[in-house]
């Protein structure tokens, strides 16, 4: 009990110190770009309203979740197939690797110029940003199935697809989850960038608009909200990982 209180104390020490320091310094020497935390807190009240949530947060969430799920499922399915069928893998993997190597932000102008502005563009941006990392990690995980498990598949006479679904994918689940987790960050990034570059809708656009109309405190509110979304998704994923594949994530002792 005492230990827990102690660790909470140390965890909250630096953030609260930063906030207090920030507040004091901006009192002495105001900087327009770093409004005091109390002003930002005031701005939170001002900004957050039902209309704002409907007009800025909701579209972002739709883009993020739809894009992530479509991208992740496509990545898993294509990745598993490429992992199982070696011939297909040899042909398609280099191009997938190439597309993955293009910085995800650089894909946005391309998609914009082909598809124009709109919800489907933003969703596609997230889909493409998520698809390739998930695909690559799935292929790698599936291709690395241990020989004993492949033999098991052969003795059970499962056939390729059933073996894939009931042996190779479960065996690779830890690594696949790591890939899915890593691409959450990429998804949030793609969402923000697609909103910043022209759509006028969503949190990303809200941040840009607040900056260009010089409502800096509002911009900070946007930044913190994006941070909270990222943190919440990260936490959610950690819970899922520990639940679904405890053996994989326990043994690696990652500090979260």
């Amino acid at each position: 009990m005492k230990k827990k209180v102690n660790s909470i104390f140390w965890t909250l020490l630096l953030p609260s110190f930063i906030l207090i320091f920030w507040e004091i310094v901006s009192g002495f020497k105001p900087n327009p770009f770093f409004p005091p935390p109390s002003r930002i807190a005031g701005a939170i009240q001002e900004v957050i309203s039902i209309e704002w949530i409907l007009s800025s947060v909701k579209p972002s969430f739709i883009v993020l979740f739809v894009g992530y799920f479509v991208g992740a499922i496509l990545g898993l399915v294509i990745g598993s197939l490429l992992g199982e069928f070696v011939k297909m893998r040899i042909v398609f993997l280099p191009i997938c690797n190439f597309i993955r190597s293009i910085p995800s932000v650089a894909k946005v102008p391309l998609i914009l110029s082909i598809m124009g502005l709109g919800l489907s563009t933003r969703i596609s941006t997230v889909v493409i940003a998520v698809l390739f990392p998930v695909l690559m990690s799935t292929v790698r995980a599936i291709a690395a199935t241990r020989n004993e498990l492949l033999d098991l598949n052969r003795t059970l006479k499962f056939g390729r697809i059933r073996g894939l679904v009931s042996i190779r994918v479960p065996a690779a689940i830890g690594e696949i989850l790591t890939g899915l987790h890593a691409s959450v960050q990429v998804a949030v990034l793609a969402m923000i960038v697609s909103e910043m570059l022209g759509s006028g809708v969503g949190i990303g656009a809200f941040i840009i608009q607040s900056q260009s109309t010089f409502r800096i405190a509002n911009m900070w509110v946007g930044v913190f909200i994006v941070g909270l979304i990222g943190l919440a998704l990260n936490y959610l994923f950690m819970k899922i990982e520990r639940k679904v594949a405890p053996w994989y994530f326990k043994s690696k002792g990652l500090i979260a």
């Binding site: 932000v105 990034l189 941040i207 900056q211 941070g227």
Partner: peptide, 9 residues
């Protein structure tokens, strides 16, 4: 957990 691009503005 904050995508770095939000710091750009």
């Amino acid at each position: 957990s904050i995508p770095s691009v939000v710091f750009l503005p």
